[in-house]
């Protein structure tokens, strides 16, 4: 299987001499859902944000389908970002725009600023948006403002916005952390099934180890800015969890 994303020797230090990521090596294939687990502050979020360069790496290489994206800027960076879908913990929808406008935001990389401002999107984009609304079960909400939705609905719109890009990889930064358990499961199901349907890899940062085990094809455990576990959920033992999170009292 061809690799979609190869990360080599990735280091990030927000303050010089205090690295958050200390030499990460990871490869992502064409399909499958990867869950990145680890305690807060261990650099999971930084790692996922570096992939689409919302955060800039300090050192190392990120190869995305043959494009080295650790140092690109401007137009080149925007063209790579179009191909990477991102889902956020707090949904990050534009609150005062309608659900439809939020979805079409996913196409902004492909239409001119003037056309976007005049809300002139290609017919196929609008059709795609309605299809996605159907998939996420919000067909009746197209013209509602995003701030009128519930958390679970917002996150589904967030996922649909990312899918509007027709991405070649889908990143999700703690997509379930602000949601109740039932909605969390629904969101994970949606991420998983959309990854399969579109034949793209899905990378999810997640706190909930049980959710990770249930939905992931592969689990990456991080602690102190390093990868300490990388394998299928079945191989993840309590010993690994102790190493990833430290201590053991919380396991009982």
């Amino acid at each position: 299987m061809a690799a979609v994303l190869n990360i080599r020797g990735l280091t990030k230090a927000y303050k010089p001499g205090m690295p958050v990521l200390k030499g990460i090596d990871l490869d992502f294939d064409e399909r499958g859902l990867t869950a990145i687990i680890g305690s807060s502050g261990t650099g999971k979020s930084t790692l996922i944000r570096i992939i689409n360069r919302l955060v800039n790496p300090t050192e190392g290489s990120i190869l995305f389908k043959g494009v080295e994206l650790s140092r690109i800027e401007g137009r080149q960076l925007r063209e790579v970002r179009r191909r990477i879908g991102m889902v956020f913990q707090e949904y990050n929808l534009v609150e005062r725009l309608s659900v439809m406008e939020n979805l079409l935001t996913g196409r902004l990389g492909y239409v001119s600023a003037l056309d976007a401002w005049r809300r002139k999107f290609p017919e196929e984009d609008v059709t795609h948006a309605y299809e996605l609304l159907d998939i996420i079960g919000l067909s009746d909400f197209a013209h509602q403002r995003a701030d009128s939705l519930s958390g679970g609905q917002r996150q589904r719109v967030g996922i649909a916005r990312a899918l509007m890009q027709r991405p070649e990889i889908l990143l999700a930064d703690e997509p379930t952390s602000s949601l109740d358990p039932k909605t969390s499961v629904e969101i994970m199901e949606l991420l998983k099934s959309q990854g399969v349907t579109n034949g793209i890899p899905v990378v999810v940062n997640i706190h909930d180890v049980e959710l990770a085990r249930r939905f992931a094809d592969r689990i990456v455990g991080m602690t102190g800015g390093r990868v300490v576990f990388d394998g299928p959920p079945a191989q993840l033992t309590d010993d690994h969890l102790k190493m990833i999170y430290g201590g053991e009292g919380w396991l009982q």
Binding site: M86, G106, G109, A113, Q165
Partner: peptide, 23 residues
Amino acid sequence: KQIEAVRATGAPFLSVVTYGVLP
């Protein structure tokens, strides 16, 4: 956060303004 999300789609700066800032 809303700006970050619009940027992450690869939107050009002017579209970030019209879709992320102006609303």
